[in-house]
């Protein structure tokens, strides 16, 4: 399936963010991609069903590694990781009958490229539980250079000393610039550095950023 317009695929499902969903989506569209330009999808990598299957598998892997899910919390990275984190939590509740706390984290203030590109917070961080002694599973949409995850690790340290931090991503596209590796992966997707991957609960698209 080839899609020509980003508007048709970039709809964040309402309810996940509360009434602010549309607003968050609007801001996300404004801020992504970071250097400006328009994302033009070239093809679909994963369908809606594929994304759901991958998230279900990741949820099972998390449950398998942490029997009973005691002390496990999910933290979605703003904004792409947030709907994925909520989806994993709902699968965990269905399968294991355990309500895993979900937080959201914006890493804008911890980035090492402030001043190199527009870095503005996309949404407010919301971690309403104590991280001390917890197993934190960071959830993000795409793992690329690893710099967002590095920033997230710094940010998490300010909220408390987690017992362990794991990383779950929907797409690992390679090109790491830091020694960071994911624990749970939806799909390994070899890409060119200039390509762009768009992840939502509706599917995964591979495309390019076209500067205007």
């Amino acid at each position: 399936m080839l899609l020509t317009s980003i508007e048709t695929v970039k709809q964040v499902p309402r309810g996940l963010y509360g009434s602010g969903g549309a607003q968050v989506a609007e801001r996300e569209r404004k801020l992504t991609p970071p250097r400006g330009g328009v994302f033009v999808p070239r093809g679909q990598v994963l369908s809606t069903e594929d994304v759901h299957r991958a998230l279900t598998r990741i949820a099972h892997e998390i449950a398998e590694q942490n029997r009973g899910l005691r002390d496990v919390v999910l933290v979605g990275l703003q904004t792409g990781g947030v709907p994925l984190a909520y989806r994993i939590a709902s699968v965990l509740e269905e399968v294991e009958g355990v309500a895993v706390p979900v937080g959201t984290l914006d890493v804008a203030f911890y980035r090492d490229d402030i001043g190199l590109r527009p870095v503005l917070p996309e949404a407010v961080t919301d971690i309403s539980f104590d991280l001390a002694g917890k197993v934190v599973v960071l959830v993000d949409d795409v793992l690329f250079s690893g710099r967002t995850v590095r920033a997230a690790l710094d940010a998490l340290a300010d909220y408390g000393r987690a017992r362990a931090v794991r990383l779950a991503v929907m797409i690992d596209r390679g090109h790491r610039e830091l020694p960071i590796r994911p624990d749970f992966v939806g799909k390994n997707l070899p890409t060119r550095p200039d390509e762009q991957v768009d992840v939502s609960l509706d599917g995964v698209l591979l495309g390019e950023v076209v500067k205007r």
């Binding site: 911890y110 402030i114 503005l120 917070p121 407010v124």
Partner: peptide
Amino acid sequence: RLSDSFVEVSLRAIPKVPAL
């Protein structure tokens, strides 16, 4: 809108970020 994020930072146990 930017201050929303900093209100959240101010409420943390460690109200400090390395941004600047």
